[in-house]
């Protein structure tokens, strides 16, 4: 169980105009199968970097430590191989793909992942049926499928589109990087429902957020506090509430 996702002593840096900048300074984290964990922390603490390193973005150089996912050396895999293995990242700032039809993109992605997992590809009819069911659940209009990926989408539409992709790709481990930012309360509920309904013994998630609000809807099994590239405190869901009331100061002081 415990070797579902295991991160040990992970250190990573990025090239900032020619000088390497250390961002992750020794992350230890385990997420068992079926659990949802949250990471909270001030800006610049390395939360998004952690999500990028786990999903394989090339700008970051891992200098030390390890990460295994389902027993595989995660850091040795290409981003698409991680996706095939069941990893998904919901982007904080979803990327625009001009001219690329959203439905076509979704189908290409779904079938790429299905192929890699040894499943049959979905034909156009089966795909459309699957996608329609999901857009309905997320209160998205069909019109969004016809537009170019994320082009001209509002902040809320982009986030819903991320959750739509997550649901269609059926990951076993999802990272949600500030998926709540820019969402009004109704949209937040819909997105949370999109995540909660995947909850079960075969779905784990890492929810990155600034606000306790999201964690009212997606109640985590564990909450980790991250600061200056390290996890400085871990606890139950009550940690989020403490943070909301008292801020990060006491955690930072305790860690110092």
């Amino acid at each position: 169980m415990s070797d579902f996702l295991k991160i040990q002593g992970l250190e990573a840096r990025i090239d900032a105009d020619g000088t390497p900048k250390e961002i992750l300074k020794g992350i230890d984290l385990e997420i068992p199968k079926g659990e949802i964990h949250a990471i909270m922390g001030p800006n610049g603490s390395g939360k998004s970097t952690l999500s990028y390193v786990l999903s394989g973005r090339e700008d970051y150089e891992v200098t030390s430590g390890s990460a295994t996912f389902k027993g595989e050396d995660l850091l040795a895999l290409e981003p698409e191989e991680r996706a095939a293995l069941g990893m998904f990242l919901a982007f904080q700032s979803p990327v625009e793909l001009p001219g690329v039809n959203n439905a076509n993109f979704l189908r290409t992605a779904v079938n790429a992942v299905r192929r890699a997992r040894g499943e049959d590809e979905l034909d156009a009819v089966a795909f459309l049926k699957a996608v329609r069911a999901e857009t309905k659940r997320l209160s998205m209009s069909d019109e969004m499928l016809k537009r170019a990926v994320n082009v001209g989408f509002s902040g809320g539409e982009k986030k819903r589109n991320e959750v739509l992709q997550m649901r269609l790709l059926q990951p076993s481990f999802a990272i949600l990087d500030e998926t709540d930012s820019g969402l009004d309360i109704d949209a937040l509920r819909i997105v949370a429902d999109g995540v909660n309904s995947l909850r079960g013994p075969d779905f784990s998630a890492l929810v990155i957020t600034h606000h306790q609000r999201l964690l009212d809807y997606i109640v985590p099994d564990r909450v980790h506090v991250m600061a200056k590239g390290k996890i400085i405190y871990s606890g139950g869901p009550e940690v989020a509430k403490t943070l909301e009331k008292q801020g990060y100061t006491q955690f930072l002081e305790a860690a110092a």
Binding site: G56, E80, A83, A112
Partner: peptide, 10 residues
């Protein structure tokens, strides 16, 4: 990276 994280090859 966005496309590849969705399972598409480069």
């Amino acid at each position: 990276f966005y496309c590849r994280s969705r399972g598409l090859s480069e």
